[in-house]
Design a protein around this nucleic acid. Structure first.
Lengths: 109, 109
DNA sequence: ATTTATTATCGTAATATTGCAATATAAAAA
DNA sequence: TTTTTATATTGCAATATTACGATAATAAAT
């Protein structure tokens, strides 16, 4: 098949999976890290930062945008990108739950 | 191509991507959530919790195990699964960085 | 020893992802 | 207006992922 059985899972599960999946590529990790590093919006230079062709980078940016992890606003003929708190906020509580799990539970296996 | 250019990225970027990718499927989110919920190792009943056939679940468990997100130890003819702090620890600091980014930076776009 | 229960592996079909060349689009600059 | 610059879209080939039936492997139970 190759098709995920989305309808069999809760909306929350699908949402978290979508976010994690969007993060789950080294190029997209690199984009996120770059946006953290420059600590502000960045216009344009993302393509120069990555070892990938421009259409490939554009595609990765689109996926991050669809997931709500970055925002891009037109700034003349360039686009200004920055991290989007909305997407990251959603996945944050998931990892906080895991953190509190490890804080209250001993490793058993 | 369909092949990720792993060699073009840092080891950290590839590692984080591998972890996020492993989390990035609703069935694997469901497995993780179930392990949190029962708050201990769980032997066997994971297949019954998911709307997927046994081989599919087994495959998802394997991926989580390979990523270092869960551990499984033999317990008779069953297997005892629990979350693995190792994998989650690696991805934790990444999200902490993002958190501190949002704490010190105003949304601009 | 045979059966039962649990998990893993193999094989395979369907679909998704990755990457890029070519091309399109759109705004600024000349 | 033409050119340049920056980004997006299309089309396609290569590879990866998802799912499951069939089957294997292993240990407990009978």
């Amino acid at each position: 098949m190759g098709i995920t059985k989305t309808e069999s899972f809760t909306e929350e599960q699908n949402q978290l999976a979508t976010l994690a999946k969007a993060i789950g590529h080294p190029a997209r990790i690199a984009i996120i890290q770059h946006l953290i590093k420059v600590n502000s919006c960045i216009c344009g230079d993302i393509v120069n930062e990555l070892p990938l062709a421009q259409p490939t980078v554009s595609q990765h940016l689109k996926e991050l945008k669809n997931a709500g992890l970055i925002k891009g606003s037109l700034e003349g003929n360039a686009v200004c990108y920055c991290l989007d708190e909305k997407g990251f906020g959603k996945i944050k509580s998931f990892f906080e739950n895991i953190d509190s799990y490890f804080n209250r539970t001993n490793q058993c296996c």
